[in-house]
């Protein structure tokens, strides 16, 4: 319904308003008013020229660990 692309903050133009993100191969100005202060190197989910939320690297790693543990264990009772 609402296509989003993760982008890495590479430049802050106006704090809490505009930043430049890098989406592999492309750099673009995006609005950051909805996500507050952003830091260089942070990843934002971009929809139609605005960041809608920050990506949480720790949560991302946890999801993967959960699935990898399940794959390794092969136990149908564990997810």
């Amino acid at each position: 319904m609402c296509l989003g692309v993760p982008g890495k903050v590479v430049e802050i133009l106006e704090p809490s308003r505009w930043a430049v993100v890098e989406i592999p191969g492309v750099r673009r100005r995006v609005g950051t008013a909805l996500v507050g202060e952003v830091r260089l190197g942070e990843y934002l989910m971009i929809h139609a020229g605005y960041a809608i939320e920050k990506l949480d690297a720790e949560q991302a790693a946890q999801s993967l660990e959960l699935w990898e543990a399940m794959a390794g264990a092969g136990d149908p009772g564990q997810v």
Binding site: P6, K8, Y43, A57, A60, L64, W67, M70, A71, P76
Partner: peptide, 24 residues
């Protein structure tokens, strides 16, 4: 982060999850 995000496309892990989805 880029590497972490790339792992969400992992085919091997996808096969395991697919098998579990079919069982469930």
């Amino acid at each position: 982060m880029q590497e972490i995000l790339a792992r969400f496309k992992d085919a091997q892990l996808g096969k395991v999850l697919l098998r579990r989805v079919r069982e469930e």
